[in-house]
């Protein structure tokens, strides 16, 4: 009985629906994705040194890596994003999230949830993430959270 409900019954199904059929594949290969993430990290650092938080967020939230095989790029992107979140004054958060486009808000929410799933990893700070989560939910509503949960393009 140890295997109860752990048997992969899908292996006997010739016509099994694969996870990858449910979304468009990420266009870049792993090496390109990592290069892209590195370039963005550099761009974000220069924006942050000028104190340009919206610019930094705008850079990192465009064309984020998703799907399998690009773990390195995903990790680097999360790291870069956490740096931005941590270096933002909490009084500015509200206006910043309101200025983001809906797509950017959805993407940011995905990273907040990813970060909350990895407490103590790198510079991830629960209280900072919760602060952003509160302001983002105020701006984008529960729909934004629903999209994070629904979207198969996991970051």
């Amino acid at each position: 009985m140890d295997n109860f409900r752990k048997i992969d019954i899908d292996q006997f199904d010739e016509d099994v629906l694969l996870e990858t059929e449910l979304y468009e594949p990420y266009p870049l290969d792993p090496a390109q994705a990592l290069d892209d993430a590195k370039q963005k990290a550099a761009a974000v650092r220069s924006s942050l040194s000028k104190g340009d938080i919206p610019g930094a967020l705008g850079t990192i939230l465009e064309g984020v890596p998703y799907g399998p095989n690009v773990e390195d790029a995903k990790t680097l992107t999360l790291q870069t994003l956490v740096t931005i979140l941590n270096s933002t004054k909490s009084s500015d958060v509200s206006n910043i999230v309101k200025a983001l486009s809906q797509d950017q808000q959805d993407t940011l929410m995905k990273y907040i949830y990813k970060g909350m799933g990895m407490p103590g990893w790198g510079d991830v700070s629960g209280s900072v993430l919760l602060g952003w989560h509160e302001k983002l939910t105020e701006a984008a509503g529960i729909g934004c959270i629903v999209r994070t949960l629904t979207d198969r393009r996991t970051v």
């Binding site: 959805d106 984008a140 509503g141 529960i142 729909g143 934004c144 629903v146 999209r147 629904t150 979207d151």
Partner: peptide, 24 residues
């Protein structure tokens, strides 16, 4: 289920997707 309504005009095709703040 991602809290959106989409309206499709097939000749384009043009798809308008409205993202909602609420539940699906």
């Amino acid at each position: 289920h991602d809290s959106t309504i989409s309206i499709v005009y097939p000749s384009g095709p043009v798809i308008y997707t409205i993202k909602l703040n609420s539940l699906p």
